[in-house]
Nucleic acid binder design. Structure first.
Length: 257
DNA sequence: ATGGCGGCACAATGCCGA
């Protein structure tokens, strides 16, 4: 079973790339973030025609998340039942006995911003809800755009980024807290190439100069981590015409698909 | 020091992302 996550930065613009990527990479589950559309605009028919079930929740202009799955998606939950939030940033569903949680964690903008406080509150709410979900689901995966680079090796220039949003100590502490609840960063289960990131700024030739951050992650519960045989970042879509600034992350689980 | 790119919006510039 292969599960993946991709912040597409507008599904309206990126739908052809999503369909192309799925044709090239027929994963079992693909979590999308930043669909940036209301549910009435969601291209469900095109995705179903590509052989996927889909669950989604969106809003105008910002945010929006979706789960695409080759298998039926059960027990769909939209948003965190224990955190009041007008943003559409979270959707969960169960696929083949695996609890899939797709998250678009807030960016935070800057350490001085109200949005940063919202990000930390949001992470607190996520933690509390995750604890409950983990009790209910042995096999659980949290996939998405975390907007957190967990360690300096996940940052192209740690000195330049020091103290900035995405790398600040409180955000990293929230990531560590998820690891302390036994969620495992699938990417770090394996030897990886150095300086491999999942996001690059559109500006200043960020991708060509590999000025990136690893902020898109797949975290696995212990029962799933034990089955994980690979985790890769696929840089290919970042090279396509009119790309998202993020690129997909894929984990392979040795479970019957 | 700022914005640099890209997407979006009651549309020209401003907000937002990261």
């Amino acid at each position: 079973m292969k599960i993946a996550t991709w912040n597409v930065n507008s599904l309206k613009v990126r739908l052809p790339q999503v369909l192309q990527w799925l044709a090239d990479n027929p994963v079992d589950v693909l979590c999308l973030q930043e669909t940036k559309m209301t549910d009435d605009k969601f291209p469900a028919a095109e995705i179903v025609a590509a052989g996927y079930h889909v669950a989604f929740t969106g809003q105008k202009t910002y945010n929006g998340v979706a789960i695409l799955s080759r298998h039926p998606i059960a027990d769909v939950v939209k948003n965190n039942p224990h955190f009041e939030d007008e943003h559409q940033r979270l959707i969960a569903g169960t696929v083949n006995g695996v609890r899939i949680i797709c998250a678009y964690i807030p960016n935070g903008q800057s350490l001085e911003s109200d949005k940063y406080q919202y990000k930390l509150r949001w992470l607190g709410g996520l933690h509390d809800w995750l604890a409950r979900e983990m009790l209910a689901h042995d096999k659980l995966a949290l996939l998405g755009d975390y907007n957190i680079a967990p360690e300096d090796r996940d940052v192209h220039d740690p000195v330049a980024w020091e103290g900035q949003v995405l790398v600040s100590a409180p955000e990293r502490a929230a990531f560590v807290k998820m690891q302390e609840m036994k969620l495992v960063d699938a990417f770090r289960l394996f030897e990886q190439p150095e300086k491999l990131y999942s996001w690059w700024d559109y500006r200043q030739m960020g991708f060509r100069l590999n000025r990136g951050l690893r902020i898109d992650h797949i975290l696995l519960s212990p029962a799933l981590a034990a089955t994980c045989s690979a985790c890769v970042i696929d840089k290919i879509p970042r090279k396509w015409e009119q790309p998202s600034d993020h690129t997909p992350v894929i984990a392979t689980l040795d479970l019957p698909a």
